[in-house]
Write a protein that binds this DNA or RNA. Structure first.
Lengths: 252, 252
DNA sequence: GTAGGAGCTGCCGCAGCGGCAACTTCAACC
DNA sequence: GGTTGAAGTTGCCGCTGCGGCAGCTCCTAC
């Protein structure tokens, strides 16, 4: 069955103006446009709208949402990825609540002591504040983060976006190889891994151990694992295995 | 001790540009400005910044944050209010994750059945999507919501903001009466409750039972209770009791 | 025909920033 | 003293994702 725009707006909680905006930007075209020019939506559009609104609730921008939805290999797997993001964001709010609880306890303690509150580790005041981003985090590799930031500073926004798009495309190609049943040490997978290695080397010298550790971070680092698993489940481990095989056969 | 703007930006995760913006808007003035024109922040500013960033993370706008922070009766109580909001928002994300899980289960079931997915209750697709707002919610009283919307439609934005400010001020006056130890049926409290009743009556006729139900909603309705408790703990029940006493002595 | 509701397109403006240019200040070095 | 580079300033512009509105069309009921 189908619904006119006012019905979809009512049931979803967004305005009709927003739905038209999403149509204009190509993010959510209606199922059909009647002879009267009115937009009509069906089940498939509702499901897509759900995904859009979940990702909006997580702070993802519209162009990025378009990329994520275009990259999905399977609808159920995409929803599983969103589910994981929601749980990760929920955990962040928990961490933020803990941060606030700690501040409360410290303020109460300083009142009991009758002393002004002193802050030994001011960074602790802000744990959990920054929202999790659907982006890579090289926090565990400061030299790479530094080199990546310097490199990004020399790019204009179009180049930065193209670079991010290429990164996503690489992950998608890897997912396709995985779903085609190729083992992580198969030649096409290793060719993709080689391209990834070369992109890193352009930034900064990469030892075998460094690259291996980066591979492990694909599974161990929350932001990285979330990014990979959002494409398709199992991709993070596949990427780690691909890097492990690459290091073993080509770097050592 | 104090910190220059770059240090505060580093430890908090916001940009120096944002901190200057907050100073310009009056939201977070620095502790002092040096002879060199540089901004320096102390512990008190860090604590205030924490509150600002928590509320930003919850989607609260800057003018509203200013009002909330101006309305706090006690810093620890304010933080307790933020803590409750964080937990409420965390629960909303949980609900949203449940919504996504349900969609996954339905999609998987329709695949098992080999049938296209049908949506009986499309509203269910969007449960938990809309963020909780720090605002009153008259959802349980549709006639009042309708009348309030019509009234707001005749106001320009300055008037709407003044109206919201007066509402917050009323809640603060009530909190002051409560912390001064006056019982809910004391004359000054009943005078405030009378003003609230009159403001409602201007919108729409209010029966005794209606007003009593609104009083109960101060405790039962999550958005309302959060708003009241953010001012000071116990205020929601105090407001309910004040309305109960008012209805008993003046409306019946 | 009229009135009112639903929906359209196109335009403008907002909130909360991020980025940048041009400038000042400061410290270290020669 | 001059130079250099880092840190910080103000003021301006532009971005994203909308919300609001004007002027219009279409449809239904009377």
């Amino acid at each position: 069955m189908d619904w006119p725009i006012s019905e979809v707006a009512r049931m979803s909680g967004v305005t009709a103006r927003t739905l038209r905006h999403y149509d204009e930007t190509g993010l959510l075209p209606p199922a059909r446009v009647g002879a009267n020019g009115h937009r009509y939506y069906e089940e498939h559009q509702l499901l897509r709208l759900q995904q859009i609104l979940v990702l909006r609730a997580l702070g993802v921008g519209l162009p990025e949402i378009d990329r994520i939805l275009a990259a999905r290999v399977d609808e159920v797997d995409a929803l599983r990825g969103h589910h994981r993001r929601l749980l990760a964001e929920r955990d962040r709010l928990d961490a933020l609540a803990d941060t606030v609880s700690r501040t409360i306890a410290e303020l109460e303690q300083s009142r009991k002591d009758g002393t002004p509150m002193t802050i030994n580790r001011p960074e602790n005041l802000f744990e959990g504040i920054q929202p999790s981003q659907y982006e890579d985090s090289l926090r565990d590799f400061p030299e790479f983060a530094e080199a990546a930031n310097q490199r990004a500073a020399t790019m204009d926004p179009t180049e930065v976006e193209a670079s991010q798009r290429e990164r996503t495309a690489q992950m998608i190609r890897l997912a396709e190889l995985m779903t085609a049943g190729l083992p992580a040490d198969a030649e096409p997978v290793q060719a993709e891994t080689d391209a990834q290695y070369r992109a890193l080397v352009e930034l900064h010298a990469v030892s075998a151990e460094d690259f291996r550790a980066i591979g492990r971070s694909c599974v161990d680092n929350d932001a990285w694992r979330t990014a990979y698993e959002a494409i398709t489940p199992g991709l993070a481990a596949y990427q780690r295995d691909a890097i492990e095989a690459y290091v073993t056969t080509r770097l050592t």
